[in-house]
Write a protein that binds this DNA or RNA. Sequence first.
DNA 1: TTATCACTTAGAGTCTAGTCTAAGTCAATA
DNA 2: TATTGACTTAGACTAGACTCTAAGTGATAA
Lengths: 121, 121
Amino acid sequence: MTIKEVAEKFDMTNDTLRYYEKVGLVGPVKKNSSGIRDYSEEDLKRIEFIKCMRSAGISIEVLKKYVDLYDEGENTKLERQQLLEEEQKKLEEKIKTMTDALEKLKFKIELYKTDKLDEYL
Amino acid sequence: MTIKEVAEKFDMTNDTLRYYEKVGLVGPVKKNSSGIRDYSEEDLKRIEFIKCMRSAGISIEVLKKYVDLYDEGENTKLERQQLLEEEQKKLEEKIKTMTDALEKLKFKIELYKTDKLDEYL
DNA sequence: TTATCACTTAGAGTCTAGTCTAAGTCAATA
DNA sequence: TATTGACTTAGACTAGACTCTAAGTGATAA
């Protein structure tokens, strides 16, 4: 699969894909005889995972660490699991924070709707 | 209330508070005879709101727009409400995205726990 | 054969949201 | 009185995550 196809499939830019490869999140992707990238199934799976985790706000740095541990082999399993559990915790907290903010936002909108807005901001 | 007290109260830095003032999110904050900031109750309420919305990922730019509309007066009420509703929608989508990612993360952790991890990454 | 187009690279530039620095003022304390 | 410490300013710097540019290669269309 070419970089263009991958970019379309996952709705991201070629630049981002090359950037992820440069920082070591994906690949190194195989190149054909003219030096053009040909993404493998495994590359695609990694990209999908990375994209999903990025959309949740997990940093490139953390993901890079996870990928590196993975590439180190079996003996890093526990450490990888712990890393994921740590991110799970952070993500749950973030969702909580955002849900609270959403409630406040909804409340404020309600004030606008019922024209009871006599407050600050 | 001094900048230091405000910063402590809301767990942010003096720099951030001055930055918010510089970009027009807060204030202009009253200064005493020696030029020291003295935050009013209204300033505090704005800061609390801003902080809450920032923690949900709403951009400075959007918040600035909202504050500006507010300062324009009554006749921007509808526009303000629409802006908030737009942000509500975005926030709900973001929470959904993050919740989905969280589920995937939990699933992966489960695979680690049950030692069924035979996949990619 | 020449031009077009998609790809390649290294590296520079951009955006957001702060964060830090340097130089200066003022009030209070040793 | 001298110095300490908290505050002030303008403006430079940073981190994270891309995003763009310039210069080049190679396959295909006119």
